[in-house]
Nucleic acid binder design. Structure first.
Lengths: 119, 119, 119, 119
DNA sequence: GTGGTCTAGACCACG
DNA sequence: GTGGTCTAGACCACC
């Protein structure tokens, strides 16, 4: 369900946040779905529970989930709306990369072709 | 000539490496051109000489320049060839972003339009 | 475990790199063994943490170890294979010295005797 | 006659000193032979005259040559004797290399064979 | 003037 | 606790 690269430069907790945002975006996680418990998921991913805790706290801060003490943690009603705010950031990154590619004199055609290949 | 964002997440020394790679790619720096001295450029960018030293060491490691102690630092003969190896990495990044955008259900048209705007 | 000569012409960080390469070569350090932390070892050798950091970065660059930020630094799986590539370099140096000795009209017997004394 | 590697880690002036020591050792330069003038040789090697000056000063300091103002610079009578003092240093280096090779588990036979190939 | 190395000490993010 | 980065300032050898 979620894959972690321990050796990546992007922090583990951020990888987790990204993963959940994608799951929400692709509607694999819907409003009021329950998230895996910290203990279970941290064990399953063999990461430090503190790290997962931090990821969940971040998701909460972003309003993508809420916790019900003694019961669990659930996806917010408006999670999917909020997560699409990330679209802008991604497009921003896309522009940055495209800008660099232009400086490296890569043709527009080649760039578009590369993008099209993914879709 | 070079602009540094002190608060960026990417380390200063890496920003500098990228900047020089671009200057080489765009042929603003050619083989055997002399690079600005450590002291001068570090002062001009108001960063620590050590930080710049680290950036220059990295460029050297990549074979993009060579240093002649007591004399200066110069662009390698084959710097431009080497730097174009970076094109592949950038296209790789592009694919990763495009992949994410697809997961966020951004239409292919919108992505291409964004790219085209940069060129 | 490691000995540093502060006054040697070869930089401290390079002495450290060499020391670790030998420890790997002699299998005193094996794959996935943890390296001493920057703080601890720098204190023990009474050198600056930055200097040790530089040595460790070099080992990493050579693919002899990898770091997991917040966790530690570990010997690579294929470290021992890589380090044996150094054998060739050493034999190269040996030839250079022998060549010089020949120019100085040192007899082959004396050279061989000197070598044999070390083994 | 003399070859310089501008990019070597050993300083240029030291390369020159070494070169002359070898020429003396191999008797290509004998007592009272004249050395090339600073201006001529520095031009021929396309190095800075100051650098050559420093090399000559070093040779003089070692008693391998003497200068006669207005006339030139000449090899000392006992230059060849003195230069053979370097034999000890070279044997020292040889031992250091052999020691390292032993740590890298290179067999004595292979080491001796490598040495023999040079002679 | 140049590059190379080192020390001392600080701050940050991560686990 | 860990590694990563940065600053400030020093010293050296070399050209």
């Amino acid at each position: 369900m979620i894959e972690i690269d321990k050796y990546s430069r992007t922090p583990i907790y951020e990888q987790i946040v990204n993963a959940f945002e994608q799951l929400i975006a692709s509607a694999e996680l819907k409003a009021n779905d329950v998230l895996p418990s910290v203990r279970m998921l941290s064990q399953q991913l063999s990461i430090n529970p503190n790290t997962l805790q931090k990821a969940y706290a971040e998701l909460e801060r972003k309003g993508l989930c809420y916790s019900v003490p003694g019961s669990g943690r659930f996806i917010s009603d408006d999670a999917q709306n909020k997560v699409f705010g990330k679209k802008g950031e991604l497009l921003q990154e896309l522009k940055a990369i495209a800008e660099e590619l232009r400086l490296f004199k890569v043709s527009l055609e080649e760039v578009i072709e590369t993008v099209r290949a993914v879709y």
